[in-house]
Design a protein around this nucleic acid. Structure first.
Lengths: 121, 121
DNA sequence: ACCATAATTCGATACTTGACGAAATATAAA
DNA sequence: TTTATATTTCGTCAAGTATCGAATTATGGT
């Protein structure tokens, strides 16, 4: 129950659901995610920590960047069923579609370049 | 998104998840539910209102009693997928199993009798 | 070794939520 | 019509959470 509730609570926040969608097709670093969500880095970091705690996502450090990906697949069927639910339920959601478009254009530039732009703001 | 988040938030509370499980096989009146959960009537009522608002459950008044049931089936596929997720994820949960046992013995008595016992406390 | 920087942690604040008891509502029984 | 009672609504309090900016950590480049 504890484990399920942790997942359920992780899913009960719109920004976290949007993050899962962003990670659907590829791993992303924090700066890419926050570029879509338009939130403070610390806020995004906290959301990622919640998703990580619920074991819905995994992370790996590559240089200065931390990459996050769905932990779905491998040894986490619970994460899969949870994500499946989210993905099936929101496939046609306008917010999600906007995010996906925005993500597409962000993926075209280097994370390095993206971070530089963010630093200027 | 709005609709999905309402469902997700409704599921992000243990007592509400337990309520869905109680309603899995039959409809129940409020006094039967609160007998299992051991919460104040007003608290249970609030939880039921949240589930109702998310359109996960339906209600009908029969005399002094209000009966709640899953709104799953019929015109609410969203409720179905949500409940399916809950039911599949917690099929072997100890808390849920205890609740089911407790429910079984509660179902043996009239709601009328049950309410009388509750009033004495 | 020092500086720049991606990300996290921490502290503060505003908001939301879960719990209860008391009061209100609605129905049935007397 | 009065009374008893099943449930809901309301007010309040405590606990939890989302957000931010500032400080901290960790890594890479100079």
């Amino acid at each position: 129950m504890r484990e399920f509730m942790e997942i359920a609570k992780a899913l009960a926040e719109e920004n976290r659901v949007r993050i899962l969608w962003l990670l659907k097709e590829q791993e992303l670093c924090v700066c890419q995610i926050l570029e879509v969500l338009n939130l403070a880095p610390s806020t995004v970091s906290k959301h990622l920590a919640v998703l990580y705690q619920a074991r819905l996502i995994d992370s790996s450090k590559k240089g200065r960047w931390v990459y996050y990906r769905l932990s779905c697949g491998g040894t986490r069927p619970e994460a899969c069923t949870a994500c499946d639910w989210v993905f099936n339920s929101l496939a046609k959601d306008p917010q999600i579609q906007t995010d996906q478009k925005r993500l597409k254009s962000i993926l075209k530039m280097d994370p390095e370049e993206l971070c530089r732009i963010q630093a200027e703001r």
